[in-house]
Design a binder for these strands. Structure first.
Lengths: 355, 355
DNA sequence: GGGCTCTATCTAAACGATTAGATGCGAGAA
DNA sequence: TTCTCGCATCTAATCGTTTAGATAGAGCCC
């Protein structure tokens, strides 16, 4: 016999007052309550194990204290870590977090937003993947995009300075003596990875504008035979090739094996994401190609796992926690200061630095 | 001028009916509605962009359609992947997921449960870490534990057959010719890792009961000097030592380096978790110790990332998705069948199998 | 003592949906 | 014609809070 949870009315009855007084006590309400009464109410509440019903409160006060967090995929460590920090920041501000994985699909992202709105969330944090398209900003509640989002819209977008990160990475590889620096981008441009690619082109000497023909090495998620083509970026030094693969480890692993088989592996490479860098490491290891001796590698995410690969990845570390904090501050109109701290280069082994 | 979202009453007014009829239409309600009226209502609802307020619905019907998911830490890939699958399973059953990270702390776990109960969740999925203690099953709503939980309580516990997994791992290393198989456990016994450790002791020949003195190698999270002690398990063959470290990559990495420095590295090792295995790999790589040639390694989680380490980890793969599905089915009283499928051995490179 | 101001408290109307019971009406049965 | 049945619909109570407005006393001043 599980008994019905007790309500404000139960407490009021037990304390011999009205529900209003109980409410005032519970919330340090808008009106004062005599000390003696307050004691009685508190005692009765404790006695009955009273727990305020947030649903009823939300209905009345039009604020649920719940924020919706839309992600591409929490099992991707980059998004997973971001999600964790966002949840932490919200918890600290006494908000609850409703999560949903959109699985890189714009429709599912829209669908999730709809469901969250129906649940009357107070706000939305959207960690949009670049594949999710620039869905129109959701109406009705405040929203913040993290990592990537529609520029110029009403909703702020919180993202680190990707250009600076890339410049640092290129400069670091040059310090190790590499004149050519290849870049492993995503399957298509757009989103933060697109920005990173542009920054790389600029750093490496190519004209970032619409230059002449440029052929690329491509690997899809499928392990089937995919033609590998590459060529120097127009204006760049030979060897500074643009590579592409899906964002999965599998795809980057497959691409790496293929490049090795063809003798086309660059000497220095910047991977747009940790997932891809880990795939490259995996492929190189399997083929017996030593990193960093034969391939110097830098990755641009800097998720926690990048520190424990073999060899440890040199990364430009995205300030994920700072980004999450700022996003939450902006959402709750606490104003999150200016730009989040820039990504910082963390030299480890994979670029050629000593262990 | 953002206009107030429209309500049932608005739709009723527009359609020239009462709110009851609108409700019946929206829910294919408990009573039928004339076809013509239904059309008018639907048209009005579409016109006004009506979206039912789930909060109000929840208040009246005492069911929110929201399930609380309590985790230790979503940024740990094992828990992260589990969380993703749980969310997916709930989404499929048309439920929303409220998440919270307890950060391995029993108090915070209890605190989260309290907050979720206040939010009137319909149920709780608790992915408890073994450090979280056996908190009393929360009252009032159905709950399911995943990975680890209080045995014998009213709440079911969904976990894979860890013993079988360990037996497979030991057997596989024996097939590779290793007579001794060491085990890297967590900082203390209890939880699934405790079960795994016991199963290893049994498989390796030691008495699983309270045997005589057994000294162990220990490494904390701190990189400071920690004494390393080890000895054969009573009754086991020499070399089948029990090692311990925190569940972090850092701790396992540090332990590995220390063992190597002392010349005390085993030839074959089973790591209780992927995180630890990755730390071992990292430490071994840094010291130039080749895996699997000098150290054969099997890990017991089988998270997605285990496939792309260098070398790829041989694992016994926990059926995370099946566990999540079953937990959700149990929670929603759909009955999730019997035990989840056992963990399956996935041979990769780190144990000594060919690539 | 009557008229004030304060303070502490109570009453009751929201919030937006669900749903049992009441109502109205046309068709068929007697 | 009158009664009954069934259908479509309406009315209104309800879920548990919040909070504005009403009320009741106490203390104070003239």
């Amino acid at each position: 016999m599980t008994k019905r949870p007790s309500t404000l009315a139960d407490v009021a009855r037990a304390a011999g007052t009205s529900t209003a007084v109980v409410s005032y006590v519970i919330n340090n309400g808008p009106r004062p309550v005599a000390a003696a009464t307050r004691e009685r109410v508190l005692a009765a509440a404790a006695e009955l194990g009273y727990r305020p019903n947030r649903i009823a409160r939300a209905l009345r006060s039009r604020s649920t204290g719940v924020v919706g967090l839309v992600l591409a995929d929490a099992s991707n460590p980059y998004f997973g870590a971001l999600a964790r920090y966002v949840e932490q920041a919200l918890e600290r501000r006494d908000r609850l977090t409703l999560v949903g994985n959109a699985g890189y699909s714009p429709e599912r992202q829209g669908h999730l937003v709809e469901r969250f709105l129906a649940a009357q969330v107070d706000g939305l944090v959207i960690v949009s993947s670049d594949t999710a398209g620039d869905s129109a900003a959701p109406t009705g509640v405040p929203a913040v995009y993290v990592h990537h989002g529609p520029a110029g819209g009403p909703a702020p977008v919180v993202a680190a300075d990707n250009r600076a990160a890339v410049r640092q990475a290129v400069a670091h590889l040059r310090e190790h003596g590499h004149r050519s620096v290849a870049f492993l981008a995503g399957p298509h441009d757009g989103g933060p990875v697109g920005v990173r690619r542009e920054a790389w082109e600029a750093a490496v000497g190519g004209d970032p504008g619409p230059v002449g023909v440029r052929r690329e090495a491509v690997a899809g998620g499928e392990p089937g035979p995919v033609g590998v083509r590459r060529e120097a970026v127009a204006g760049g030094e030979p060897g500074s090739v643009l590579l592409r693969s899906d964002y999965s480890r599998a795809a980057a692993d497959a691409l790496t094996r293929r490049l090795i088989a063809e003798g086309a592996l660059p000497r220095a490479l910047i991977a747009a994401t940790d997932e891809q860098a880990i795939g490259v490491l995996s492929g190189a290891w399997a083929c017996g190609v030593p990193v960093p001796d034969r391939l110097a590698l830098i990755s641009l995410d800097g998720t926690p796992e990048s520190a424990y690969t073999a060899p440890a990845l040199t990364v430009t570390e995205q300030p994920l926690q700072a980004m999450a904090e700022q996003a939450v501050d902006l959402l709750l109109s606490l104003d999150g200061g200016a730009e989040p701290p820039a990504a910082a280069l963390v030299p480890r082994r994979s670029c050629g630095c000593a262990a």
